[in-house]
C-alpha cells in the first residue's frame, strides 16, 4: 500500500536541507523495519516521494511524503489502531526535531502532492520594526496590481509578476521578539517563498523565522489539506499567547 505521512520539522534541524531530509527518511524507515518497496535496477532506492521542498532554514508543521510499502499489501485492514501504531513506530525512528503528525493510506492514482498542492499558509516572524510600520507595508503590497521581481530559475535570472501568488497577507500578532505575519502563498506553477515576498515589500523585511503551517489542495471552491491534524500545536504558538 501507499502511505501518506505528514510530519513537522522544527528547531535546530530546520537548517537541514531537502536532500538530507530524504536521506534521513531512508535511514529512519530502515530503523523502523518497515517493509518499504525498492526500485528495480542497478542501484535500488526505496520508493519514497516527497511533496514540495522546504527552503533550508524554514520550520514546518506540514511536510509530506508518501511511502510505498510491501506490507501491508493493501489498506483493507487499515484503521485507527494501525494508524496510531504506524505513527508511533516511525516517529520513534526519526531524529529529534522531526515528528510524525499523521499517517493515512494514499491513493496511487491521485496526482502527486507537488501537482495537487496549490497554496501554503506560512507564519513569518519579522524583526521588531513596529507593528504599524509592518501593517503599512502589507497594505501597500496588497494594493499593488503587479509585483515584478527578479527570480532565479534554473540558474537564470528572470522577471516575474508574483502578485497573483500572494493570496492573503495579514499582521497577526506582535511580541517582544517581533511582528508575526500570516501569509497564504501560491505554489503553482512554482512556489513563492516568503523571503521573496518580504524582499519585494517597501521597505523590504527580513524574516527571523518562517514556519509552514499548512499545505492546501483545491477541492471545488474549497481547500483541503492532504492530511489534516486536529489541533496541531504550532511552534509559534507560544508567540501567539
Amino acid at each position: 500500500m501507499r502511505l501518506r505521512v505528514r510530519f513537522s520539522k522544527t528547531g535546530k534541524v530546520r537548517f537541514v536541507g531537502h536532500r538530507d531530509v530524504a536521506r534521513i527518511w531512508e535511514r529512519s524507515l530502515r530503523k523502523a523495519s518497515l517493509s518499504v518497496a525498492y526500485s528495480e535496477g542497478f542501484s535500488p532506492r526505496p520508493k519514497l516521494s516527497f511533496g514540495l521542498a522546504l527552503s533550508t532554514g524554514y520550520e514546518s508543521n506540514a511536510e509530506y511524503l508518501e511511502i510505498e510499502l510491501l506490507e501491508p499489501a493493501d489498506d483493507s485492514i487499515w484503521g485507527v489502531v494501525e494508524a496510531e501504531a504506524m505513527c508511533a513506530r516511525i516517529d520513534a525512528s526519526l531524529p529529534a526535531g522531526f515528528d510524525v503528525m499523521a499517517v493515512a493510506p494514499a491513493d496511487r492514482r491521485a496526482d502527486s502532492l507537488q501537482q495537487a498542492v496549490t497554496s501554503c499558509t506560512w507564519e513569518i516572524l519579522v524583526d521588531p520594526a513596529g507593528a504599524d510600520e509592518v501593517a503599512a507595508g502589507v497594505e501597500s503590497l496588497l494594493s499593488r496590481n503587479e509585483i515584478v521581481v527578479e527570480r532565479e530559475r534554473k540558474g537564470k535570472v528572470v522577471t516575474e509578476d508574483i502578485r497573483h501568488q500572494v493570496l492573503a497577507l495579514d499582521v497577526t500578532g506582535e511580541t517582544d521578539d517581533g511582528v508575526r505575519l500570516t501569509a497564504d502563498l501560491g505554489t503553482q506553477p512554482r512556489a513563492l517563498r516568503p523571503d521573496e515576498m518580504l524582499a519585494a515589500m517597501d521597505p523590504p523585511l527580513l524574516a527571523r523565522s518562517v514556519c509552514r503551517m499548512n499545505q492546501w489542495m483545491s477541492q471545488g471552491d474549497d481547500r483541503i489539506e492532504p492530511l489534516s491534524v486536529d489541533a496541531a500545536p504550532a511552534p509559534l504558538a507560544k508567540v501567539r499567547a
Binding site: K12, F15, V16, G17, G57, G97
Partner: peptide, 24 residues
C-alpha cells in the same frame, strides 16, 4: 550561543554543519 548563531546561520553555506543534533 545558539540564539546568536541561529540568526546568522542563514548566511552560510551548508548550515547543517553547525547544528549538531546527530543521532548518538
Amino acid at each position: 550561543l545558539w540564539p546568536e548563531l541561529e540568526r546568522v546561520l542563514g548566511e552560510v553555506q551548508k548550515p547543517a554543519r553547525y547544528i549538531g543534533c546527530e543521532d548518538g
